[in-house]
Design a protein around this nucleic acid. Structure first.
Length: 420
RNA sequence: GUGGCUGUAGCUCAAUGGUAGAGCUCCGGUUUGUGGUACCGGCUGUUGCGGGUUCGAGCCCCGUCAGCCACCCCA
């Protein structure tokens, strides 16, 4: 029996990596004053069909009919859930809301490296503020999030765009608003398709390909100026690149949209997001009308990227090492002293140390090997000399003797060994 | 959903159509209180699954499932 296609078993070493990832996510979000929430994993399929998500994501819905004849779907993203929750109770919270979520999402697609059917996503949203300052806060958060893994502007770039610019463009060319979605889809695919095909698709709009191309390539994008100067003041200008070619696939985006791309290798987008000022009103039939901006980051692509960037990999490895399953291994050199070893281990554990010892009689050499492979920093040898014990640093094999009653004090003084 | 490549031990891989092997991991040991190297020993396979061709298939053919890559799209 194997897991279903696109689903993964997380063995302890896999889970440790995920914990590291989630730890950085939470840490960064909190540094920006965000609070964590969660919603149901299973939702009514209507939540995703109802004039919001739209686009390709509907074809990837992991949906079915439940025993109560309800059309349901595992969430492909959390934004609709967030929008529903906020619309329902936003009056209970001061604005703007700074909310984040770490949750499992599902999309029924053919799996590939960095793309699974079940994945973990970090979502961060700021609701109740439509200013460029809010946009900048979110882009800055995304940049710091990626930097928290040891990634630099040599490793990734945030491509910034604004759908408003495209709406203006369409206005100038006399295209009615209702066709904007269809048009943005052409822009979205433009950089991946041959020019002839794009040109052909533009015919119904009466827009020449050259006009589109020069618009995408123009240097100044007035609608992004406030956002860029804000990022400049934060010292983050080097992490972003204005690029009108980015429009994003989701239908509910209204203004600024952005995507984080890896600069090396052929990984897909690491993160993506944008402004969705009408989603809450749409989902609540107007009862709640809050502007919002947010982004999502997936676990799979980020883990792949960390593997490819040496500095990020090194940082991850040292973090994992510091989080080793065992800090102190108690070596029982004389089996008759086991009761003393048991008492000591419980005492150390109550002080917060991660402690292990052999459950049965074992050769001392083997015990040291076990201590080593468990990642222990210290070994405490309990033997015939009890109540004197030996404390040994595994890394440099330095060993000293001390009375058992002095052990806790000794550990206090060497607190730096306690990696947490 | 479309196309291409691949499927042998837990992992990485061998095996001109003729009795399925190696390394690593794991477990045990190298005379009984000190660990990452060395040495010795041990365990593990319906060769992904199902058919077909053949005296004989891990190898050839068909199907199927899974994985990888590209497309699609996105985290």
């Amino acid at each position: 029996m194997k897991p279903l296609p696109g689903f993964r078993d997380l063995f302890p070493e896999d889970f440790a990596r995920r914990s590291y990832l989630v730890g950085c996510w939470r840490e960064t979000a909190r540094r920006y004053g965000f609070v964590e929430f969660d919603g149901p994993t299973l939702e009514s399929a209507e939540l995703y069909r109802k004039k919001n998500s739209g686009g390709e994501i509907l074809g990837q819905l992991y949906g079915f009919t439940d025993k109560g004849e309800r059309e349901v779907a595992l969430r492909p993203e959390v934004t609709p859930t967030l929008a529903r929750m906020v619309a329902a109770r936003h009056r209970d919270y001061p604005k703007p809301l700074r909310w984040f979520n770490v949750g499992t999402c599902f999309r029924y697609e053919r799996q590939q490296r960095g793309r699974l059917r079940e994945f973990l996503q970090f979502n961060c949203d700021l609701l109740g503020d439509s200013s460029p300052a809010a946009d900048a806060e979110m882009v800055a958060l995304l940049i710091d999030l990626l930097r928290s893994f040891g990634l630099t502007n040599q490793d990734f770039v945030i491509r910034l765009s604004n759908r408003e610019a495209w709406y203006d463009f369409l206005d100038e060319h006399g295209v009615e608003k209702g066709r904007a979605g269809e048009f943005l889809n052409i822009v979205d695919k433009m950089e991946r398709e041959p020019a002839e095909k794009t040109e052909e698709k533009l015919v119904p709009f009466g827009i020449p390909l050259a006009a589109l191309q020069s618009f995408v390539q123009r240097a100044e994008i007035p609608s992004l100026a406030p956002l860029l100067s804000d990022l400049e003041a934060r010292g983050l200008r080097d992490f972003v690149r204005p690029d009108l070619g980015v429009v994003r696939g989701l239908a509910y985006y209204t203004g600024v949209v952005f995507e984080a791309f890896a600069l090396q290798g052929n990984l897909r987008a690491i993160a993506g997001g944008g402004r969705y000022d009408r989603l809450l009103a749409d989902l609540s039939d107007g009862s709640a009308d809050l502007p919002a901006i947010g982004f999502g980051v997936g676990d799979a692509v980020l883990l792949e990227l960390i593997n490819e960037v040496a500095a990020a990999k090194t940082q991850e490895e040292s973090a994992l090492k510091a989080d080793a399953p065992v800090q102190i291994y108690i070596v029982i050199a004389a089996e008759e002293k086991r009761p003393a070893a048991l008492a000591l281990s419980q005492k150390l554990r109550s002080e917060g140390w991660r402690v292990a010892f052999p459950l049965g009689s074992e050769r001392v050499g083997k015990q040291f090997g076990t201590a080593e492979s468990a990642g222990a920093t210290l070994a405490v040898v309990i033997g015939a000399e009890w109540p004197v014990v030996k404390v040994k640093r595994l890394a440099d094999r330095h060993e000293e003797e001390l009375a058992e009653r002095d052990l806790l004090a000794w550990l206090q003084e060497n607190r730096n060994l306690k990696a947490d």
